[in-house]
Design a protein around this nucleic acid. Structure first.
Length: 492
RNA sequence: GGUUCCUUGGCCGAGUGGCUAGGCGGCGGUCUGCAAAACCGUGUACGGCGGUUCGAAUCCGCCAGGAACCUCCA
């Protein structure tokens, strides 16, 4: 199965068979968050997408080193303040905090949200602020190779010079002539030879708090640099996969390619993968557009656009139900559909544990399994894989209902398949309220007691009493299903 | 304006040159004292107009609408 994974490479705009540089090992780098405010739904997408990739690569037998950075140096902000100060130091002033305190605060909530979404931690989570020296080294080598120039303590990348030897714009499908005619002339950029040149090192203005000493000035690194230096530091000069949101393709990833190539004469990344955006009313959800809903708001339901709260697994499932390269449109209706669907899947998973076995199967477990893995191998098509899981759910329910039969060996295979795909690969987990997991034994016993009384009432055909018990337990959040044997219940 | 891309049934979303996902919702049925759950059945969906083809929603062209990027952004 290892040799069958096909992934879409933005660089070639084609699906390609994935072959790692080193047999059996994969180097994976993903652009992580800039930690200056709470994570929103949009941030969940790349993290879940590449969590799926990480899990799947691991599942098919690769040893993966997954590196996901934390951007804590801050990017230049281009808003009305015109000060050019960096996002993190600006926020710090507003809140009267140390920049690193802001970073720590939002890094903590990011980690908390990721845990809630069952996103596995990466193997290395480097911070830009901890790699200033490496970034400066990278600038030195780009300067030495003649692809950068220094002006007044700042260093800029010479795009035109680079483009004479290599091709700037290959990832995003642009060419320099187009860029020349379409780059806006921004204020305060007169140091650059050309407006499309980008900063490698910026001299800090006096009010800029985040600063480090360097040969050129007290300043801070340009905003594309950290990924170039940290990815190659931990994964090697050439590594397998670099991921991130589609909105980073240009200029961020384009500049990364230019920096790596300018410093080492060859490209660092073999496969570029980009996830699409989450939209809301057809428009990208983004911090800067102000149309975002934070993950905490989703989990608590505390936002005017939300009809109710949505659990982390609902969010995760919602995202996985679409292919990562398609946009996915947020709405209460869509989220509730996912919530119901996920419930159906987990109910089937429970049913799976108590299926009767027969001599022969009338169901095709092997075929189901094959189709599901074929979907995952096809550029990580979780949407199709999940569709096959629903076919599996129907299979399970039909066996339970006695309409289909399953053999002992097929049942074992089906169980293992479901557990592997649902828990290990898709990273879903049950979210039952505590009471049924033994955390509140006495409550379980009381509910059982009451329901047994109801059973007695039913035996007497005392429907008034039995319905009263059911309705009132329902109101308390206990869902009751009558079965042939008696009853089943669960907490909502 | 430039570059890239999208438009699928009530909603969300796969996919493919002919065999035509899936979820949610709706409708009908089975089961049930009634519910719930489950199961079964049910939709003449592929933005518009042309073209290529035996055959296109899938390929090509034009038009309409929308998006992303070009400026921080997941």
């Amino acid at each position: 199965m290892k040799d069958q994974l096909v992934i879409y490479n933005t660089l070639t705009r084609k699906k390609e068979l994935f072959k790692p540089l080193v047999e059996g090992k994969v180097g994976l780098y993903v652009c992580g968050p800039t930690v200056y405010s709470n994570s929103h739904l949009g941030h969940a997408r790349p993290n879940i997408t590449f969590d799926l990739l990480y899990r799947y690569l691991t599942f098919i037998g690769y040893k993966v080193r997954y590196v996901r950075n934390i951007t804590d140096v801050g990017h230049l902000e281009n808003e009305a303040d015109e000060s050019g100060e960096d996002k993190i130091s600006k926020k710090a002033r507003v809140e009267q905090l140390e920049p690193m305190e802001v970073v720590q605060k939002y890094m903590n909530t990011f980690h908390q949200n990721m845990r809630e979404l069952n996103v596995l931690p990466p193997n290395i989570e480097p911070r830009a602020s901890g790699h200033i020296i490496e970034q400066q080294q990278l600038i030195h080598s780009i300067l030495k190779n003649g692809f950068a120039y220094e002006v007044n303590g700042s260093v800029y990348f010479d795009v035109e010079k680079y483009n004479e030897k290599y091709r700037y714009g290959k990832l995003s499908g642009r060419n320099l002539d187009d860029i020349k005619t379409n780059t806006r002339q921004l204020e305060g950029q007169d140091e650059k030879k050309n407006p499309f040149d980008f900063a490698l090192w910026k001299k800090a203005t006096p009010e800029h708090i985040m600063r480090w000493p360097s040969n050129w000035s007290d300043g801070y690194p340009g905003w594309h640099l950290e990924c170039s230096s940290m990815s190659t530091k931990y994964l090697g000069n050439v590594f397998d996969i670099h991921g991130g949101g589609m909105d980073l393709t240009f200029p961020h990833h384009e500049c990364e390619i230019a920096q790596s190539t300018a410093s080492q004469g060859k490209e660092a990344v073999r496969y570029w993968m980009h996830n699409n955006m989450i939209t809301i009313n057809g428009q990208k959800m983004a911090r800067s557009l102000g149309n975002f809903i934070t993950l905490d708001e989703l989990f608590s339901g505390n936002h005017e656009m939300l009809e109710k709260s949505y659990s982390p697994m609902t969010i995760r499932f919602f995202i996985l139900q679409a292919h990562y390269r398609s946009t996915i449109d947020f709405s209460n209706e869509a989220l509730q559909a996912s919530e119901k669907g996920l419930e159906r899947l987990f109910t089937a998973l429970e049913t799976l544990e108590k299926l009767p076995v027969s001599e022969q199967s009338t169901v095709d477990v092997a075929g189901l399994k094959e189709k599901c893995f074929a979907a995952l191998n096809d550029d990580l098509n979780s949407a199709v894989a999940i569709a096959h899981l629903f076919d599996g759910a129907r299979m399970i329910n039909s066996v339970k209902a006695g309409q289909q039969k399953i053999s002992d060996s097929d049942l074992k295979e089906l169980k293992s398949f479901f557990h592997t795909v649902v828990f290990e690969i898709l990273g879903l987990k049950p979210e039952t309220a505590g009471a049924q997991n033994g955390s509140n034994e006495i409550v379980n016993k009381i509910i059982d007691l009451v329901l047994n009384l109801r059973l007695e009432a039913k035996a007497r055909k005392d429907w008034a009493t039995s319905d009263k018990i059911r309705n009132e337990l329902n109101a308390l959040g206990v869902e009751i299903k009558d079965t042939k044997e008696g009853f089943e219940w669960s907490l909502k």
